[in-house]
Amino acid sequence: MIIDLSGKTAVVTGSTAGIGYAIARGLAASGASVVINGRGREKVDAAVKRLAQEVEKAKVTGVAADVSTASGCDALIAAQREADILINNAGIFEPKGFFEIPDADWSRFFEVNVMSGVRLSRAYMPGMLKRNWGRIVFISSESALNIPREMIHYGMTKTAQLAVARGLAEMTRGTAVTVNSVLPGPTLSEGVETFVKSLARQNNQSEEEAAKSFVKQHRPTSILQRFASPDEIANMVVFVASKEASATNGAAIRAEGGIVNSIA
Protein backbone atom coordinates (compact mmCIF):
# COMPACT_ATOMS: atom_id res chain seq x y z
CA MET A 1 0.00 0.00 0.00
CA ILE A 2 1.33 3.42 -0.97
CA ILE A 3 0.05 6.21 1.27
CA ASP A 4 0.17 9.59 -0.45
CA LEU A 5 -0.76 12.62 1.64
CA SER A 6 0.56 15.21 -0.79
CA GLY A 7 -1.40 18.44 -0.57
CA LYS A 8 -2.60 17.71 3.00
CA THR A 9 -1.57 19.70 6.06
CA ALA A 10 -1.16 17.84 9.35
CA VAL A 11 -0.94 19.33 12.84
CA VAL A 12 0.62 17.00 15.42
CA THR A 13 0.56 18.18 19.02
CA GLY A 14 3.31 17.17 21.42
CA SER A 15 5.52 16.14 18.53
CA THR A 16 9.05 17.20 19.44
CA ALA A 17 9.90 13.67 20.62
CA GLY A 18 8.55 10.17 21.19
CA ILE A 19 5.38 8.90 19.53
CA GLY A 20 4.42 12.40 18.40
CA TYR A 21 7.68 12.92 16.56
CA ALA A 22 7.46 9.47 14.95
CA ILE A 23 3.95 10.32 13.74
CA ALA A 24 5.12 13.66 12.34
CA ARG A 25 7.98 11.92 10.53
CA GLY A 26 5.66 9.27 9.11
CA LEU A 27 3.20 11.86 7.84
CA ALA A 28 5.99 13.92 6.30
CA ALA A 29 7.42 10.82 4.60
CA SER A 30 3.95 10.29 3.10
CA GLY A 31 4.01 13.76 1.57
CA ALA A 32 2.00 15.79 4.09
CA SER A 33 3.00 19.28 5.14
CA VAL A 34 3.57 18.79 8.85
CA VAL A 35 3.30 21.26 11.72
CA ILE A 36 5.35 20.16 14.73
CA ASN A 37 4.18 21.44 18.09
CA GLY A 38 5.70 21.61 21.53
CA ARG A 39 5.81 23.98 24.46
CA GLY A 40 9.33 25.35 24.00
CA ARG A 41 10.73 27.09 20.94
CA GLU A 42 14.15 25.46 21.30
CA LYS A 43 12.78 21.91 21.23
CA VAL A 44 10.38 22.73 18.41
CA ASP A 45 13.16 24.18 16.27
CA ALA A 46 15.39 21.18 16.98
CA ALA A 47 12.63 18.75 16.00
CA VAL A 48 11.91 20.66 12.78
CA LYS A 49 15.59 20.58 11.87
CA ARG A 50 15.89 16.89 12.68
CA LEU A 51 12.83 15.94 10.63
CA ALA A 52 14.05 17.99 7.67
CA GLN A 53 17.30 16.03 7.80
CA GLU A 54 15.64 12.61 8.17
CA VAL A 55 12.93 12.99 5.51
CA GLU A 56 14.06 14.09 2.07
CA LYS A 57 12.09 17.08 0.77
CA ALA A 58 10.06 17.21 3.97
CA LYS A 59 7.59 20.08 4.25
CA VAL A 60 7.76 20.89 7.94
CA THR A 61 7.20 23.93 10.15
CA GLY A 62 6.98 24.36 13.90
CA VAL A 63 4.75 26.20 16.35
CA ALA A 64 5.73 26.61 19.99
CA ALA A 65 2.52 26.67 22.04
CA ASP A 66 1.35 25.07 25.26
CA VAL A 67 -1.84 23.30 24.19
CA SER A 68 -2.70 22.46 27.80
CA THR A 69 -4.16 25.97 28.03
CA ALA A 70 -6.86 27.74 26.06
CA SER A 71 -4.43 30.55 25.21
CA GLY A 72 -1.86 28.04 23.97
CA CYS A 73 -4.42 26.38 21.70
CA ASP A 74 -5.41 29.83 20.42
CA ALA A 75 -1.75 30.55 19.63
CA LEU A 76 -1.40 27.32 17.64
CA ILE A 77 -4.63 28.00 15.75
CA ALA A 78 -3.53 31.58 14.99
CA ALA A 79 -0.26 30.27 13.55
CA GLN A 80 -1.94 27.46 11.57
CA ARG A 81 -5.48 28.43 10.60
CA GLU A 82 -6.47 25.27 8.73
CA ALA A 83 -5.59 21.58 8.96
CA ASP A 84 -6.62 18.54 6.96
CA ILE A 85 -5.22 16.17 9.58
CA LEU A 86 -5.19 16.78 13.34
CA ILE A 87 -3.31 14.37 15.59
CA ASN A 88 -4.19 15.04 19.24
CA ASN A 89 -1.07 13.48 20.73
CA ALA A 90 -0.08 15.88 23.54
CA GLY A 91 -0.39 14.15 26.88
CA ILE A 92 1.09 13.59 30.32
CA PHE A 93 1.17 10.68 32.77
CA GLU A 94 2.43 10.16 36.30
CA PRO A 95 2.15 7.15 38.59
CA LYS A 96 0.50 8.29 41.83
CA GLY A 97 -1.73 6.57 44.34
CA PHE A 98 -5.39 7.59 44.24
CA PHE A 99 -5.41 8.97 47.79
CA GLU A 100 -2.41 11.16 46.99
CA ILE A 101 -3.87 12.76 43.84
CA PRO A 102 -5.04 16.31 44.67
CA ASP A 103 -7.80 18.13 42.80
CA ALA A 104 -5.20 20.20 40.96
CA ASP A 105 -3.72 17.07 39.36
CA TRP A 106 -7.11 15.86 38.17
CA SER A 107 -7.72 19.25 36.56
CA ARG A 108 -4.22 19.44 35.07
CA PHE A 109 -4.46 15.98 33.49
CA PHE A 110 -7.88 16.76 32.06
CA GLU A 111 -6.69 20.05 30.57
CA VAL A 112 -3.64 18.51 28.91
CA ASN A 113 -4.97 15.14 27.81
CA VAL A 114 -8.58 15.97 26.99
CA MET A 115 -9.24 19.69 26.59
CA SER A 116 -6.32 20.22 24.22
CA GLY A 117 -7.98 17.82 21.78
CA VAL A 118 -11.42 19.30 22.40
CA ARG A 119 -10.28 22.84 21.68
CA LEU A 120 -8.26 22.01 18.58
CA SER A 121 -10.96 19.74 17.14
CA ARG A 122 -13.49 22.52 17.67
CA ALA A 123 -11.23 24.87 15.71
CA TYR A 124 -10.17 22.61 12.82
CA MET A 125 -13.12 20.27 12.29
CA PRO A 126 -15.54 22.85 10.77
CA GLY A 127 -13.04 23.48 7.94
CA MET A 128 -12.71 19.74 7.35
CA LEU A 129 -16.48 19.38 7.10
CA LYS A 130 -16.70 22.35 4.75
CA ARG A 131 -14.01 20.89 2.48
CA ASN A 132 -15.54 17.40 2.90
CA TRP A 133 -12.26 15.74 3.84
CA GLY A 134 -10.36 15.47 7.07
CA ARG A 135 -8.84 13.21 9.68
CA ILE A 136 -8.83 13.69 13.45
CA VAL A 137 -6.96 11.12 15.53
CA PHE A 138 -6.79 11.05 19.33
CA ILE A 139 -3.78 9.21 20.75
CA SER A 140 -5.38 7.42 23.67
CA SER A 141 -3.93 4.37 25.46
CA GLU A 142 -4.69 0.81 26.49
CA SER A 143 -5.10 2.48 29.89
CA ALA A 144 -8.43 3.76 28.59
CA LEU A 145 -9.70 0.17 28.80
CA ASN A 146 -7.46 -1.23 31.54
CA ILE A 147 -7.56 1.62 34.07
CA PRO A 148 -4.20 1.46 35.87
CA ARG A 149 -4.67 1.54 39.62
CA GLU A 150 -1.36 3.39 39.96
CA MET A 151 -2.63 6.35 37.90
CA ILE A 152 -6.42 6.39 37.82
CA HIS A 153 -6.46 10.07 36.84
CA TYR A 154 -4.49 9.25 33.68
CA GLY A 155 -6.76 6.34 32.78
CA MET A 156 -9.81 8.57 33.22
CA THR A 157 -8.50 11.05 30.66
CA LYS A 158 -7.70 8.33 28.15
CA THR A 159 -11.24 6.94 28.44
CA ALA A 160 -12.60 10.46 28.03
CA GLN A 161 -10.69 10.78 24.76
CA LEU A 162 -12.52 7.75 23.39
CA ALA A 163 -15.87 9.32 24.27
CA VAL A 164 -14.98 12.65 22.65
CA ALA A 165 -13.66 10.96 19.50
CA ARG A 166 -16.74 8.78 19.12
CA GLY A 167 -19.06 11.75 19.66
CA LEU A 168 -17.22 13.82 17.05
CA ALA A 169 -17.33 10.89 14.62
CA GLU A 170 -21.12 10.91 14.89
CA MET A 171 -21.04 14.49 13.60
CA THR A 172 -19.28 13.41 10.39
CA ARG A 173 -22.09 11.16 9.19
CA GLY A 174 -22.25 11.05 5.38
CA THR A 175 -19.03 13.03 4.91
CA ALA A 176 -15.42 12.14 4.04
CA VAL A 177 -14.22 13.31 7.47
CA THR A 178 -13.27 10.68 10.05
CA VAL A 179 -12.50 10.80 13.76
CA ASN A 180 -10.77 7.87 15.43
CA SER A 181 -8.65 6.95 18.42
CA VAL A 182 -5.46 4.89 18.47
CA LEU A 183 -4.58 3.05 21.68
CA PRO A 184 -0.85 2.37 22.15
CA GLY A 185 0.48 0.11 24.86
CA PRO A 186 3.90 0.42 26.55
CA THR A 187 6.11 2.19 24.02
CA LEU A 188 9.86 2.74 24.15
CA SER A 189 9.90 6.49 23.72
CA GLU A 190 12.78 8.64 24.97
CA GLY A 191 11.48 9.01 28.53
CA VAL A 192 10.67 5.30 28.87
CA GLU A 193 14.06 4.39 27.39
CA THR A 194 15.77 6.33 30.17
CA PHE A 195 13.62 4.50 32.73
CA VAL A 196 14.52 1.11 31.21
CA LYS A 197 18.24 1.96 31.27
CA SER A 198 17.91 2.77 34.96
CA LEU A 199 16.16 -0.56 35.61
CA ALA A 200 18.90 -2.41 33.72
CA ARG A 201 21.62 -0.83 35.86
CA GLN A 202 19.73 -1.56 39.09
CA ASN A 203 19.13 -5.22 38.23
CA ASN A 204 22.42 -5.89 36.41
CA GLN A 205 20.56 -6.72 33.20
CA SER A 206 20.82 -5.76 29.58
CA GLU A 207 18.35 -3.10 28.47
CA GLU A 208 16.47 -5.70 26.43
CA GLU A 209 16.17 -8.01 29.45
CA ALA A 210 15.02 -5.14 31.67
CA ALA A 211 12.36 -4.08 29.16
CA LYS A 212 11.01 -7.62 28.78
CA SER A 213 10.99 -8.13 32.56
CA PHE A 214 9.04 -4.91 33.06
CA VAL A 215 6.38 -5.90 30.54
CA LYS A 216 6.11 -9.42 31.96
CA GLN A 217 5.68 -8.08 35.49
CA HIS A 218 3.50 -5.02 34.90
CA ARG A 219 1.60 -5.95 31.70
CA PRO A 220 1.40 -9.75 32.03
CA THR A 221 -1.44 -10.09 29.50
CA SER A 222 0.74 -8.68 26.72
CA ILE A 223 0.96 -10.96 23.73
CA LEU A 224 3.77 -8.91 22.21
CA GLN A 225 5.82 -9.37 25.43
CA ARG A 226 7.93 -6.29 24.75
CA PHE A 227 7.69 -2.54 24.38
CA ALA A 228 6.51 -1.27 21.02
CA SER A 229 8.65 1.25 19.18
CA PRO A 230 7.32 4.76 18.46
CA ASP A 231 7.49 3.94 14.74
CA GLU A 232 5.20 0.93 15.21
CA ILE A 233 2.56 3.18 16.74
CA ALA A 234 3.14 5.87 14.12
CA ASN A 235 2.57 3.38 11.30
CA MET A 236 -0.97 2.76 12.56
CA VAL A 237 -1.64 6.47 12.99
CA VAL A 238 -0.41 7.33 9.49
CA PHE A 239 -2.73 4.71 8.04
CA VAL A 240 -5.72 6.03 10.02
CA ALA A 241 -4.87 9.54 8.77
CA SER A 242 -4.69 8.41 5.16
CA LYS A 243 -7.18 8.39 2.28
CA GLU A 244 -6.97 4.58 2.38
CA ALA A 245 -8.64 4.52 5.83
CA SER A 246 -11.84 6.09 4.47
CA ALA A 247 -14.12 3.38 5.94
CA THR A 248 -12.62 3.60 9.43
CA ASN A 249 -14.61 6.06 11.53
CA GLY A 250 -15.60 6.27 15.17
CA ALA A 251 -13.19 3.47 16.01
CA ALA A 252 -10.89 2.82 18.96
CA ILE A 253 -7.99 1.09 17.22
CA ARG A 254 -5.67 -0.89 19.44
CA ALA A 255 -1.91 -0.95 18.88
CA GLU A 256 -1.12 -2.25 22.36
CA GLY A 257 0.35 -5.66 21.67
CA GLY A 258 -2.62 -7.67 22.91
CA ILE A 259 -2.60 -6.40 26.50
CA VAL A 260 -6.37 -5.90 26.44
CA ASN A 261 -7.67 -9.44 26.90
CA SER A 262 -10.70 -9.08 24.66
CA ILE A 263 -11.68 -9.93 21.09
CA ALA A 264 -13.63 -6.66 20.69
Rank of each mutant, 00 (worst) to 15 (best):
M115G: 09
I139F: 09
G97C: 03
I152H: 04
S141P: 12
R131P: 10
M156G: 01
A123R: 01
H153E: 12
P148W: 07
I147V: 15
M115D: 03
E150P: 10
K96D: 03
M151P: 02
M128A: 09
S140F: 03
G117K: 07
M115E: 09
E111Y: 10
R108S: 07
V114A: 06
E100C: 00
P148K: 06
E150L: 13
L145Q: 14
W133A: 00
E142L: 11
M151S: 13
K96P: 00
A104S: 15
L129Y: 05
A123E: 02
G117C: 11
S116L: 06
F109H: 06
F93H: 06
D103M: 00
M128H: 11
G134W: 02
D105S: 11
D105T: 13
D103T: 00
L129C: 09
D105G: 05
G117P: 10
V118D: 08
R149Q: 10
M125E: 00
L129H: 04
N146S: 07
F138Y: 14
G117V: 05
F93S: 13
R149I: 15
S141E: 08
E150I: 15
R131V: 14
F109K: 01
A144Y: 10
A104C: 10
Y154H: 07
N113E: 00
D103P: 00
N132D: 15
I152L: 14
A144V: 08
G97Y: 05
W133R: 01
S141C: 11
E150F: 14
D105V: 05
L145D: 13
R122H: 06
P102D: 08
S107D: 10
S143I: 07
F98E: 00
G97R: 10
L145Y: 08
A123G: 07
R149W: 07
G127C: 09
G97D: 15
I152E: 08
F138I: 06
G127H: 15
L145K: 12
S107C: 00
K96H: 01
Y154Q: 11
E150W: 12
E150S: 06
I136S: 04
I147G: 15
P148I: 11
N113H: 02
S140R: 09
K96A: 05
R119E: 00
F110D: 08
I136Y: 04
I101V: 15
E100W: 00
W133E: 01
V137Y: 06
E150G: 12
S140W: 04
I147Q: 09
G155I: 07
I101T: 15
E142T: 14
A123N: 03
S107N: 02
K96M: 10
S140I: 10
G155K: 04
F109E: 00
H153N: 10
L145A: 13
E111N: 13
R149T: 14
Y154W: 07
F110C: 05
N132S: 04
G117F: 06
V114W: 11
D105E: 08
M115N: 05
N146G: 09
Y124R: 05
L120N: 04
E142G: 15
V114P: 04
K130C: 07
F99I: 07
F138S: 06
W133T: 00
G117T: 06
G97L: 13
L120R: 03
F138D: 02
I147F: 11
N146R: 15
E150V: 11
A123H: 10
R131I: 02
E111G: 09
